Computed example of a mutant assay.
Amino acid sequence: MAASPSRTTGVADLGFARLDTERAARTGDPEVVLGQGKTPEQIVAALRTLHLAHPGRAVLATRLADEAIAACERELPDVRTDPVGRTAVLGDSPARGRVAVVAAGTSDLPVVRECAETVRVFGAEPDEIVDVGVAGLHRLLAERDRIAAADAVVAVAGMEAALPSVLGGLVGAPLIAVPTSVGYGWHLEGVTAWLAMLNSCAAGVVTVNVDNGFGAGVAAARIARRTAR
């Protein structure tokens, strides 16, 4: 069962969560459901309630286990799920502006897909450009004009995480770097990539946390929306 939002408090109390149904009015974007630590039934109830509160906007759940994705598909007929990005979406958002989501390798695809779906939900158009890491620099250079035309760029990379630094010297769009936990040995589950991005010699590179495609997608979509407006 979905709870009806309270018009006086701006909160929908589901017992296990108090959903902020007025967040879109304050920030321009509805609350998002983080699937970690929640049961499939809780995720379904939260998504349904947020969708009822924001019928003209998409609402998003992230970091979903396979069981939660299956429950969403079973209980929410209009849901759009992505088992790679581990997301579920109800509804659609109008798109303004374009975000290039650029990935060093296909191993980074779960983070890329989470980021791209977040960009779409938060009101911009994602353009996924995958497997253009610096180990084959010609692949990245072939996409330079396409990337440079975007209103914002998200660079997703693991290993030594050189991609954002290279992109920072090729394009002038706002650039958000996402380190991933892809790598060998002393890669330290993404810490190596994170430190490399923080210490980028390219100007204007802003870094989010390891595997945080969601955070990068929110920031990039808001930049793209404002730029397009």
Rank of each mutant, 00 (worst) to 15 (best):
T8D: 13
P94M: 04
G172Q: 09
A71P: 06
M1E: 12
G91H: 04
V112K: 11
D13K: 11
H54A: 00
G215E: 03
R96S: 09
A202K: 12
V121G: 02
V171E: 01
D92H: 15
V121C: 11
T227L: 09
V171L: 08
L137C: 01
R222N: 00
F122R: 14
L64P: 12
E67A: 15
D131S: 06
D151N: 13
G10S: 06
L47N: 04
S93L: 06
E160Y: 14
A202N: 04
K38D: 02
N212S: 07
V205D: 01
W194C: 10
F122M: 15
P164N: 02
I147S: 03
A100N: 12
A116Q: 07
L34A: 14
T106R: 03
I69C: 08
R120P: 07
G105N: 06
R98K: 14
G215N: 05
V178S: 06
D108Y: 10
V59G: 03
V166A: 04
G91L: 08
G204D: 03
C201I: 11
A157N: 05
R139E: 02
E75R: 12
T207R: 02
F16A: 05
E22H: 07
S181L: 07
E75Y: 09
A157Y: 11
V182K: 13
A46E: 03
C72W: 11
V89G: 00
V218S: 01
D145T: 14
D151I: 02
L163H: 10
S6I: 00
V119S: 05
A193M: 08
Q42T: 09
W186S: 13
R63P: 07
T49C: 04
R80K: 12
L140K: 06
A216S: 10
E117V: 15
W194Q: 14
G158H: 08
V134K: 08
V208W: 02
V84N: 06
